[in-house]
Design a binder for these strands. Sequence first.
DNA 1: CGCACACTTGAACCCCCTCAACCCAAGTGG
DNA 2: CCACTTGGGTTGAGGGGGTTCAAGTGTGCG
Lengths: 250, 250
Amino acid sequence: MNTCAPRPIVVAQAASASHCANCDARHRSVCNAISTDDLERLAASAIPKVFAKGQLFIEEGEKAGDFFNVTRGTAKLYKMLPDGRQQITGFASAGHFLGLAVSDTYAFSAEAIEPVELCRFSRSKLRVLLDDFPALEKRLLQTACNELVAAQEQMLLLGRKTARERLASFLSTRIAEAAACGEHGSTISLPMTRAEIADYLGLTIETVSRTFTRFKAEGKITLPSRDEVQICDLDWLNGVASGQDHHAFA
Amino acid sequence: MNTCAPRPIVVAQAASASHCANCDARHRSVCNAISTDDLERLAASAIPKVFAKGQLFIEEGEKAGDFFNVTRGTAKLYKMLPDGRQQITGFASAGHFLGLAVSDTYAFSAEAIEPVELCRFSRSKLRVLLDDFPALEKRLLQTACNELVAAQEQMLLLGRKTARERLASFLSTRIAEAAACGEHGSTISLPMTRAEIADYLGLTIETVSRTFTRFKAEGKITLPSRDEVQICDLDWLNGVASGQDHHAFA
DNA sequence: CGCACACTTGAACCCCCTCAACCCAAGTGG
DNA sequence: CCACTTGGGTTGAGGGGGTTCAAGTGTGCG
């Protein structure tokens, strides 16, 4: 169900019947479970949509009428406590499927942290698609399992890792994800702010900033710009991320 | 796939062909996706097994050859860091399906914290079952989604809640689960030790103990025995669990 | 240029952790 | 029957990692 409007962006109704066929994100998403011949069917159910930075498109507790598949940009998924404390449970970028839930209300909120393109599926249309394409359902199950594994890893991070280990894990994961997408450089771009990193890692913005500074002072990273990090010592980073030498310095 | 040996326990090969039909946990588990007529097929693939308290039956990193469905008792699922720090990601009791993973190695370990009965499925046999019973796959997807929602809730707890809120959330969830199983009392039994509660909530054993003591001193709970908690003020508990009055006392 | 916003840095504090002692109930064996 | 052990739990004192509060430093953009 990963469908994306061809660039330059064309609005929903005007989209070509085969917008799924031209989708950059298709091969990364659950939509690759649909054969090329059936893409028309898929495209007919998927409504492309665009959200600007800062726009909320899923709100925790609201009626869960739609599913989404991100095709471009990044969104943050988060839960909040009544007094404003926020926990980001993940960042969704191209290929990410959102809204998987049995309950009839969303369990989390989603907000674009940079311009986001995505495809919207109504609950009912998705159900029909799932019935017609069993492979799609298999693929969704796979996706859900992968997210479950990631969630468990994040629980380990939040429950037991130090601030240094958390940030190292974060950077390490981002490097690995970039590599999985074919980008093998040692520099990562961070579309999210320090505050969002903090809310993702269960820390405060100040601790994130200080930890970045310390890594830099130790010569393990450089910060070419606000939203870029260059990793100088990847082995060291992975070591810290995996929790080796909890109480060693240097 | 929830199958359980009729009590008294009968060992695998000797199990009746319809052990699934007599399984207490069937209606709570994914096995309820299989019609009564097809239970024989299910029972043929499910191998009942028993583990004593303390036995490890899934080891993180090992080859993931089997899936399990708990039919009795409780197991802890956890991940560990090289220096021994442990994070329990969940407790699996009757009806819980284990091993969902795309990767070919387990992402977590599982250990019985009280005597556990479960059914084992080989990867290959489960695949055949899934192909033959699409409803089973649908059910598994549902289960995975529910666990994902629970995992997100746990991330909020680990990342943003105080020790008081964590313990309150833990007790609140346990009360709700008991109610969902038809037990509507105000007393919960805790099969796990304080250390396991701590490893689940991202705290230390001392903090868990102290927080229990404080709740008791405030008259919100009583501790009839080591492994029982009686909730005196459920509304208060749910309020603390949901993070209201972060900085209020009383 | 100057405002707004994101980020950094510093100092004081506090919640929870660490370390250590102690309690208590259930075995175990002489 | 009681001394001893063992494992889980509680309680206390002190310390530290991260938070809180507050000020300062860029930096992009109208």
